[in-house]
Design a protein around this nucleic acid. Structure first.
Lengths: 108, 108
DNA sequence: TATCAAATTAGCTAAACCGCTAAATATGTC
DNA sequence: GACATATTTAGCGGTTTAGCTAATTTGATA
């Protein structure tokens, strides 16, 4: 494989992870799972969407390798597998801070 | 505004930033811009897509507040506004490392 | 076994995304 | 002014995403 193709594949893989995170409901889920594990029904309640919808969000996060699931009885508990994604929030906050600063500068 | 609505808006804003990053071509662009500023035509060459396509990718990144543009003559130069996004890659690599480890464990 | 609850899967529609080509806009040069 | 280059905007087709409801699967319980 050429270095170019290798990089392209790498970017694609990275994009998949970011894409999995790039949804308001999934961010809420990840944030909750950073505190403690939760079953699907609890997360559905928190998100405020139907369970099938949340189940699909979780499947996406699982496929991306961000969360792991653990079936116990009739319930499936999800947990955050890669806590470092929580660091993203700080950087993203910086993005908005910078934008707000500029807006202030422009407005006077 | 309720705390709930506030959080919801926050998640939406964060999702927008992540979504802007969640594309192979845009990751390549961000990576290049982390080294130095580049005009659209240079980036189009690197990405290997048509200029209009790359221009739209850049517009998306600009709207998300990740890059800034600077018109000089007939050319428009883009630069990375928030270098901390580069830290994401390390974490994403950890995601894949963890997945690979598990695959190895399962395979024996 | 019959039934209930939790979760996933399937199937549908509406909306968003991505790449292209063509057209419009803006700048520099002859 | 005419023309070439750099960039953006518009518009089109194909693909993906997101939510819902309905149906299916799985485990617990009467």
């Amino acid at each position: 494989m050429t270095a170019d193709a290798k990089n392209k594949a790498q970017y694609k893989a990275q994009a998949k992870v970011l894409k999995a995170l790039a949804h308001p409901s999934r961010l809420l889920i990840v944030n909750e799972l950073s505190k403690r594990e939760r079953c699907v029904c609890e997360l559905a309640e928190m998100v405020g969407s139907e369970m099938p919808t949340v189940s699909r969000h979780l499947a996406l996060l699982r496929e991306a390798g961000i969360v792991a699931d653990d079936k116990r009885g009739a319930q499936v508990f999800y947990r955050l597998k890669v806590p470092c994604v929580m660091n993203f929030f700080q950087c993203i906050a910086a993005v908005h801070k910078k934008n707000a600063q500029e807006a202030t500068l422009i407005m006077g």
